[in-house]
Amino acid sequence: MERAEDAGVYKLSEDLAIVQTLDFFTPIVDDPYTFGEVAVANALSDVYAMGGEPIVAMNIVCFPIKKMDISILQQILLGGLDKMREAGVILVGGHSVEDDELKYGLSVTGVIHPERVWLNTGAKVGDKLILTKPLGTGIINTALKGGLADEELVAKSIKCMIALNKKASELAMEAEVHACTDVTGFGFLGHACEMIEGTDVGMVIYSSVVPVLPGTEEYAQMGLIPAGTIRNRDFRLPMIELATEISDERLLILFDAQTSGGLLISVPGQEAEALLKRMHEESIEEAAIVGEVVDEPKGKIVVK
């Protein structure tokens, strides 16, 4: 593997490899238990995005013990542990250090068949692209930080962030996955760019069918856009061709830096509808076919 993949893979035998990843960050929600859940769903996602099955994990904790009550840490760890239980992952240890700024996350080890690793690249002409979660968590978190977010909309965003990508990954294993990644800090279009950069295929994205959390558009119009989201757009704009009139805000939403975002899966066109139907049946309600892989323009994304 030569590219920036979601996790590292090490082959142990002909039919077994381990997949390893590590992710931790500062709180993005106020409630400590919820933050624990989000951090774990986010850390496990990299394994699911490789087509692996996470089995064990270790906690990573930075905590300002002199300034903050220990009960906050207990709640974070409890939220994390409950989320690991839901995923069938066993916590085997961890490490904590004192730090001015609270951070939590996991080091995760999973297993995978060495011949069935999903890379970011490998999308083929005729593939359809399935996105399994709505966009907008970065913008809604910014509105929350600014004290301008509606409680109900924040609750929807949190529900999205704490949802595991486990089921989506398992269902995708039933199809022939050509490429897969999870949508996180670079935003949906940023990660889509990674899938095709320097390859001999391109993508068409149908912007109007990309699922978006309620409230995102409105907050974007108010200028509640994270700096990372704006940087994502500025960095990748040369790879984007706008084939339709699309508002600045809509384009920024497509680049919105996500926390614990969904999977972006490239599957053969004839398999996409059936996989999408299975996802909807399994309560991955917002999953949608958002685009397709094309011959031309190579290494570019046409946004329609």
């Binding site: 974007a220 119009q221 108010m222 200028g223 509640l224 856009i225 700096a227 704006i230 600045d248 805000e249």
Partner: peptide, 15 residues
Amino acid sequence: ETAVSKENVSRLARS
């Protein structure tokens, strides 16, 4: 004093 703030404040004002 950042390009990001310029863009976001302008967006708010226009809206």
